[in-house]
Amino acid sequence: MTTIIILNGLSHAGLLFIMASGLTLAFGLMRVVNLAHGAFYLWGGYIGISVFRATGNWWLALLAGGAAIALLGFIKERILLHWVRGKVLSESLMAIGLATILADLALSIWGGSPLSIRVPADLNPRITLLGITYPGFRLLVILMSVVIGLGLWLLLAKTKLGALIRAGVDDRETTAALGINIYVLFTLVFMLSAFLAGIAGVIGGTFLTIQPGADFQVLTLALVVIIIGGMGSLPGAAIGALVTGLILSFGRAYVPELSFFLTFAPMAIILAIRPQGLFGRAFG
């Protein structure tokens, strides 16, 4: 029983981490909290579901969801964000406007009923361990989130692009002064962030469901994760996702009426004692 709750918590944490890592990555460099990240998740999920229904290939659906949203991210960054660059609140409010439009358009395309991908059996073996039957796809989600986390860490720590991003995070002006086109960097990072939201949508559309409203539900949890972990911090997103995922899972098992409330408790505690989050830096 407890094993199942923990495994559930971990698979949820995996999904939240993929969402939150995208948010936190874009924030670290650009100081933009993309409040349309949830709408990106929604669209990624719907596109993934459509591609899966057309082809029956889950991995293709995953890639298609990610790629389509990366493109959407490109458009948003190049056209909309470019317009209000540097005005932090306008950037966020614009994202809210975009999210409203995307949600309404999604409704007109995919309708109001919940949709979901039925996982192909080879991706979802029933794994029986110590007398407990557990769906294999959830273990795959945990694995994927770990791989993505490691991949992002390697990208930031070991590649030239990563070095440039880190330089941009630390000192935007100097990096720009060194002749590096910081705006190209912005676009690339924002697309990566959108890509992560897109694949999170496909994963969420597989082990959960996608329906109107799913966008802001998952966005809220992802925000809680980065508030706990600290904005702009990848390890912070990991810890925040773990804490949130496990509390969600245990809360649902033992106090279902208050599970949502409990999920926010660590956020309140963190805000009270360390407002910048566990791994956050104080900006300004």
Binding site: I5, N8, A253, E257, F260
Partner: peptide, 15 residues
């Protein structure tokens, strides 16, 4: 009974 909007029933199913 469970609240509307639960995306995880494993604890209910396990017990």
């Amino acid at each position: 009974w469970h609240p509307v909007g639960v995306d995880d029933f494993s604890s209910i199913l396990a017990t």
